Measured scan of single mutants.
Amino acid sequence: MGFKLLSKLLVYLTASIMAIASPLAFSVDSSGEYPTVSEIPVGEVRLYQIADGVWSHIATQSFDGAVYPSNGLIVRDGDELLLIDTAWGAKNTAALLAEIEKQIGLPVTRAVSTHFHDDRVGGVDVLRAAGVATYASPSTRRLAEVEGNEIPTHSLEGLSSSGDAVRFGPVELFYPGAAHSTDNLIVYVPSASVLYGGCAIYELSRTSAGNVADADLAEWPTSIERIQQHYPEAQFVIPGHGLPGGLDLLKHTTNVVKAHTNRSVVE
């Protein structure tokens, strides 16, 4: 069995187990497998329904001669939608809004960016022009300005110390501490036991640490421990890039980060 097929099978099995364990909360999309990078042309966006009122959005972007996937989250909030992270750029984010209108038909009224990198804030200006209120932590807003990236308009308070959590509509926002970046936030959907790890969490097929220019490698494993301790009931975990899975993604990420750190020390 090929690795790609095995990865998709694991996603399907995880979703099936969740649907059985929580039949009222989960209505997993039966329309197909989780979209992969090879299936999404740059400039297009796919939506994948995880649970009743919960979707991931998947886009792709060219970077350094390669094409990478990027995940975000959409959560229903009454007759409105909360968006977590842009679709990595203005063109993708405009396509995301169009796809949401086509498939869901509810307005996106608020959006949260989970850290300051372009795959999370690139497209904020498109959201703002569409009347979406954009939010991020003060740290993310400051770092985005320093980096020359787009800056969300509103500040999220109460997320300055490791372990801080605040309720934001249908989700809980959690600051686990520094990891992929010093400002990275985690998003949890309690009604569906869905954990969105953003770039602080890796997919299972990833074996290298990737972009760690703004990471705190020493603190990252401790931050992941905080996530595990705060959300032990999480059933569906979405990484910032690639295929979702279960809580095993947290341990896998820790292993990859520690291996990278150990290699760096040896070198």
Rank of each mutant, 00 (worst) to 15 (best):
C199V: 01
P190A: 10
S181V: 03
E33W: 09
E147Y: 15
H115F: 00
Y34E: 09
A213C: 08
A25Q: 15
A209S: 09
H241N: 03
L143A: 09
L47A: 04
D119E: 03
Y196Q: 00
F26M: 15
H180T: 00
V37C: 08
P176K: 00
T114V: 00
H180E: 00
E99P: 05
L127E: 01
T207A: 14
P23Q: 13
L143P: 04
F63S: 05
E203R: 01
D216M: 06
V212H: 06
A178F: 07
V108M: 01
G78V: 09
G177N: 03
A19W: 15
A213G: 11
F26H: 11
Q228C: 07
C199A: 01
I20Y: 08
V132I: 13
Y202F: 14
D85R: 00
A21T: 14
H180G: 00
K91I: 14
I238G: 02
Q235L: 09
S162K: 14
I186Y: 00
S27R: 13
V194E: 01
A178W: 07
L73F: 05
E80H: 09
H230P: 06
V121L: 06
K258Q: 13
A66D: 13
I40V: 15
G158E: 08
R263D: 15
W55L: 03
V11M: 07
V132K: 05
G72H: 02
V124S: 08
M18L: 14
G53A: 09
L5T: 15
N262K: 11
K91Y: 10
A165T: 13
L73I: 07
G158V: 05
G123K: 04
P239A: 03
G122K: 08
L6Y: 14
N262T: 12
S16Q: 15
E267Y: 10
G242S: 05
R142C: 06
Y231D: 00
D214M: 03
N184F: 02
W55N: 04
A94F: 13
V266E: 15
G148H: 11
V194S: 01
E157D: 13
Y34G: 09
G163L: 05
G89D: 02
S30M: 15
F168Q: 03
E80G: 09
N71P: 02
G198L: 03
K258G: 11
Y12S: 10
A144I: 07
L127D: 04
F3D: 06
N211L: 05
H180A: 00
F63H: 05
A209P: 09
E233A: 12
S205A: 10
D85M: 00
G197C: 08
L13I: 15
A21V: 14
V166M: 12
T93K: 01
Y48W: 15
G89E: 00
S161R: 13
V54I: 08
I40F: 14
T109S: 13
D216A: 08
A234Q: 01
V42Y: 07
L97C: 00
R263V: 13
L185K: 00
V11Y: 07
G158A: 08
G148Q: 10
Y188M: 01
K102S: 13
H260W: 05
I104M: 05
V54Y: 01
G197R: 01
R167Q: 13
L9F: 10
L156N: 02
A130I: 08
V67G: 10
A259R: 13
L217K: 00
A95E: 09
S161P: 06
H57C: 04
I74V: 08
V189K: 00
A51D: 10
S160Y: 10
L173E: 01
E145T: 11
I151K: 08
L250K: 05
L243H: 15
A259F: 08
I224A: 02
I224K: 02
A111M: 09
E219Y: 06
R142T: 13
W220D: 00
D64R: 12
T253V: 03
C199L: 02
E157K: 10
S7Y: 14
I84H: 00
R206C: 07
D183W: 01
T253H: 02
S70G: 03
R206A: 15
G197M: 01
G72Q: 03
N184I: 05
P35L: 09
Q61K: 13
G197P: 06
G246S: 12
L243G: 11
R128Q: 13
S56G: 15
H260C: 10
G32M: 07
Y68S: 04
E39N: 12
G105P: 07
I104Q: 00
L247P: 14
E157C: 07
V266R: 14
S205D: 12
I58P: 02
W55C: 03
G245N: 05
L247E: 09
G105W: 06
L83C: 00
A200S: 06
W220P: 01
G240P: 05
Y12Q: 09
N184W: 01
M1F: 07
I74H: 02
E172M: 03
L127H: 05
I201T: 06
I40N: 07
V212E: 04
A19N: 15
L73T: 01
C199R: 02
A218T: 13
G72I: 01
T36Y: 13
A25H: 15
V266W: 12
H180W: 01
Y48V: 15
D125H: 11
D64N: 15
L249P: 01
A200H: 02
V28F: 06
L106M: 14
A87C: 00
I50P: 05
H154L: 12
R120M: 01
H154M: 12
S264M: 11
P221C: 05
V124Q: 03
G245E: 04
M18V: 15
P138I: 08
G177T: 00
R76E: 10
D52I: 09
L249M: 11
W55H: 04
P69L: 15
S162Q: 12
L83F: 02
D29L: 09
L106D: 07
T261G: 11
R76H: 08
V124E: 04
S155G: 12
S22L: 11
P244A: 06
E267S: 06
R226W: 07
L156H: 05
H230S: 13
F116E: 03
E233Y: 12
A87W: 00
S27K: 10
V37F: 15
T114M: 06
G240N: 07
L247I: 13
L82S: 01
C199S: 02
T60F: 11
A98P: 06
P239H: 01
P107M: 09
E267M: 11
P23G: 10
L96E: 00
V121M: 04
G123I: 04
V187E: 05
D214P: 03
P244C: 02
E147F: 15
F168D: 00
G89N: 01
Y68G: 04
L156G: 03
P41V: 13
S22P: 14
N255A: 13
L24C: 07
Q229F: 11
V108I: 10
V126S: 06
E147M: 14
H115M: 01
L127K: 03
T36V: 13
D248G: 12
V265A: 12
Q229K: 14
E172N: 02
S162C: 07
H260F: 06
G246V: 05
V121P: 01
T253K: 03
D183H: 03
V171F: 00
S30E: 12
R141E: 03
P138M: 08
I227Q: 02
G72C: 03
S161E: 14
P69E: 15
R142P: 03
I40C: 06
S27W: 10
A133K: 14
L243Y: 15
D118P: 13
S7E: 09
S137L: 15
P239V: 01
Y12T: 13
D248L: 09
F236G: 03
S181C: 02
K258L: 12
L24V: 14
N149G: 10
F26V: 14
A51Q: 07
T261P: 14
P138T: 09
I100C: 00
T134F: 02
P244L: 06
L96V: 01
M1D: 05
I20E: 15
L82E: 02
L185C: 04
P170T: 07
I84F: 12
S162G: 14
D79E: 11
P35G: 08
G78A: 08
D248H: 07
A192P: 06
V237A: 04
V146I: 13
S70Q: 03
H117E: 00
F3N: 14
L73Q: 02
R128Y: 11
G43W: 04
N211K: 04
W220K: 00
W88D: 00
V126H: 08
S223M: 02
E80V: 09
A25I: 13
S70T: 05
E33K: 12
E80M: 08
T182Q: 13
R167M: 12
T36S: 12
I40G: 08
P35C: 07
V121D: 02
G2R: 10
F26L: 15
V237G: 03
L47R: 04
A111K: 02
T207D: 15
Y175R: 01
K251E: 10
T60P: 04
